[in-house]
Structures are given as structure tokens and as C-alpha cells.
């Protein structure tokens, strides 16, 4: 039993990794590593980068604004508000910035659409009230 299961959860999605060799994260006391068969553990991860190695020896890098790590029964769960996963360490910072910008852009677009809908609704209500006055 050299591997464990990893579940990553945030407000957008959940990802499962069936075979993970090791996980390296950091809390306020410093950096630590977890391997299969670890005792029951709960840790509050700090802002920044965590990483884990899958069964094929590939490292995955996880950037998050803190989170809660729970390890029990050879399964680890990492819960965060929003995490960004990448395999290229050198590019993860740029990917993160790009994704944040994309999220901002999406919010801006949604806000613009909502404002447009509100204006159309007010216009329509104005038109309807004008017609109602004509009928009276």
C-alpha cells in the first residue's frame, strides 16, 4: 500500500486522484509531507503552493488561498474556496493570474448582462404603464 486516494474540493468542482504517492503542503508551522498509511490528520493549509506526486511519478502543483486537509483511512481530502491545479511549476503563477483575470472578465460580463436585462425590464414596464394610461 504505497499510494493513497486524493480528493480535491472547491466551490467549482471536485477532482479525484486514485493513486498518489506523496503530498507536500505547508501550514503555519512549516512544510510537511504525507505518505500512504499516515495516521488520522487534520491540518489547515496556508496560502500558496502545495504539491503531490501521482503513481506515474508526475508532480502536480496546487495553488490555493489556504484550505483544510483531512487524512483518514488512506484517503486525503483537501477542501479550499478555490484551487488551481497545474503540472508545470514555472507556469502555474501565470496560469493562476490568467484564470483570475478570466473569472473577473466572466463576472464583468454577467454583471453587464444583468444591467442590460434590468434596463430592458424597466423600459418594458415604462411602456406597459404608458399603454395602461392610454386605456384609462
Amino acid at each position: 500500500m504505497n499510494t493513497f486516494a486524493l480528493v480535491l474540493c472547491d466551490s467549482y468542482n471536485t477532482q479525484h486522484f486514485a493513486s498518489v504517492r506523496q503530498f507536500i503542503g505547508a501550514d503555519d508551522s512549516g512544510s510537511f509531507g504525507i505518505r500512504a498509511g499516515h495516521e488520522h490528520l487534520v491540518a489547515v493549509l496556508r496560502y500558496g503552493l502545495a504539491r503531490f506526486e501521482d503513481d506515474d511519478g508526475h508532480w502536480h502543483y496546487l495553488s490555493m488561498p489556504g484550505g483544510v486537509l483531512h487524512f483518514r483511512g488512506n484517503q486525503m481530502t483537501v477542501t479550499s474556496v478555490r484551487y488551481y491545479l497545474g503540472e508545470d511549476r514555472a507556469k502555474i503563477h501565470d496560469q493562476l493570474a490568467a484564470e483570475m483575470q478570466q473569472a473577473d472578465s466572466d463576472v464583468h460580463t454577467s454583471h453587464a448582462s444583468l444591467t442590460e436585462i434590468e434596463h430592458a425590464l424597466i423600459r418594458r414596464l415604462g411602456e406597459m404603464s404608458g399603454k395602461q394610461q392610454e386605456w384609462l
Binding site: 505547508a26 503552493l49 495553488s63 488561498p65 511549476r89 503563477h93 493570474a97 483570475m100
Partner: peptide, 17 residues
């Protein structure tokens, strides 16, 4: 929070390298 996440991530990447 976003700036902090970006900064901490960049710092951790630098530290690893």
C-alpha cells in the same frame, strides 16, 4: 486575497527552484 495568493504562490515556486 488574490494578490496574496499570487504572491505566496510565486514565493513558493521561487523557493522550490
Amino acid at each position: 486575497d488574490r494578490e496574496r495568493q499570487l504572491e505566496e504562490t510565486a514565493r513558493d515556486v521561487r523557493r522550490l527552484e
